[in-house]
Design a protein around this nucleic acid. Structure first.
Lengths: 249, 249
DNA sequence: CCAACTTTGTGCACGCGTTCACAAGCGCTA
DNA sequence: TAGCGCTTGTGAACGCGTGCACAAAGTTGG
């Protein structure tokens, strides 16, 4: 849900393509975003299973563990190819490899965190991020007292050096954990530094060029959505009440 | 994206309802989740405008500030009623009040945070959460060294006391920031303690009863989605390359 | 080797959310 | 007060994602 996205992605998949051509790359483009998010969840569940020594699993069981229905799981997996065996199920290791390939986890993506406050600290210490590796290879802040201090094994640099450091260390993903007013300026520098994707924790709508992908994690919004549901429940209860409904039990 | 949601919400809105009846409560149920999330964003933008002394605004300008198109903005606002003036725009204060009402922000919702590690610390110190208040009124951890220690002004309690403390302080929203293995047990206790909604930071698919709402914030998944986009871009570039495309510039 | 059973992969239909485009409504001006 | 221009609010069409249900395919047992 970046500032502008999709909008005009007109070409979803080449329509008149030869059927025998693999077209993996075109296929990748056609995977719905929601499915990509679920694939990441499947990957985690599968990794857990692999550690437990499970080698094979059916869609029914895997879908239950991932909290979706089995048809959706199979459709999601079909986006990346046919790696199951009918009558048997899926080989865990094969799925793990294929999902990692599609998600681009075979290459390591260097990450930087900007804003080493409470949240930034937490993110920096997260340690390469759960699951396999997104190495955090740069940290930035404005506070002079923090510059040069190691956090989670990385030395904090000054935000003025974002462009240079990001270029040097080939950072592809930037995480913004600054106060809201600083976010847009930091974002601009990350873009100048060649960062392709941004994960934004600041409650601000970022403006970015079309070639940069933004995802935002907005705690206030999440809380307010929950608040909405609490209110909705309360209203429902009030409604049921005034319409003379008998309380069960 | 809780474990199970929606599924069978058959009743979307009473079909043959009298047109003159307000039916605000029924209306509330019909607001799509995506629209609720955007309403929260509009609310933040509007609050900022109000502070700057702006009293009135048109959909075109507001939508630009929120990063959506104007038609979507107007449709979203129409879900909560007709509070605009044709030919003029919307009164900022009116919109703020109405969105707050719909989101249930008129009542304060007490929040608790479970797991006072790096992330939990950050959340506890977030200070009533951005925008107007979600007072954090309880903190929990297993670590004996943390029990009784004040974090962000609140004393940390033991996770064994979750049920009692949540009941006593009428906590309606629980935030889980524990390691993955502890998440489900903590979740069960929160539910027993009467918590209605859960915000889950642990990379685990939580199982909850139907009457509890779960939202998850999964950093690993977010990173992997970004990774997918990086990979997609790289593939596109490779494609364009091998098809003999001329690099612009 | 055949039959029965199991599970995948997917065509199709349904429903929700987004977008378009315009009618309805309000204010301003003459 | 009538006409004009602007902006809202929404009916309708479109497109995407979800869920169903079944054909295809593979395995096991006789």
């Amino acid at each position: 849900m970046g500032a502008r996205r999709g909008e005009d992605v007109e070409v979803v998949a080449a329509p008149g393509r030869l059927p025998d051509e693999p077209a993996v790359r075109e296929r990748a483009r056609a995977i719905p975003e929601a499915a990509v998010a679920r694939l990441a969840v499947y990957l985690r569940v599968l990794s857990g299973l692999a550690e437990q020594g499970v080698t094979s699993i059916a869609s029914e069981e895997l879908s239950a563990a991932a909290g979706v229905n089995s048809a959706k799981l199979r459709k999601d997996l079909s986006y990346i190819g046919s790696y199951g065996t009918r009558g048997v199920g899926y080989e865990v290791e094969v799925l793990v490899d294929q999902i990692e390939r599609i998600l681009g986890l075979t290459r390591k993506h260097s990450v930087c965190v900007v804003g080493i406050g409470n949240l930034g600290h937490a993110l920096a210490n997260y340690g390469g991020f759960p699951g396999r590796g997104f190495p955090v290879s740069a940290l930035f802040d404005v506070d002079e007292d923090l510059i040069g201090v190691p956090v989670g094994g990385i030395l904090v640099s000054h935000v003025d050096d974002i462009v240079r450091v990001c270029s040097e260390r080939e950072i592809s993903i930037g995480v913004i954990a600054t106060p809201p007013p600083a976010a847009q300026a930091v974002c601009d520098r990350l873009v100048s530094g060649g960062v392709q994707c941004i994960l934004n924790f600041a409650p601000v709508v970022l403006q970015v060029p079309d070639h940069v992908e933004v995802r935002k994690v907005d705690l206030a919004v999440e809380m307010q959505i929950l608040s909405f549901h609490v209110a909705r429940r309360a209203d429902e209860a009030a409604n049921a009440d005034e319409s003379g409904m008998v309380v069960p039990g």
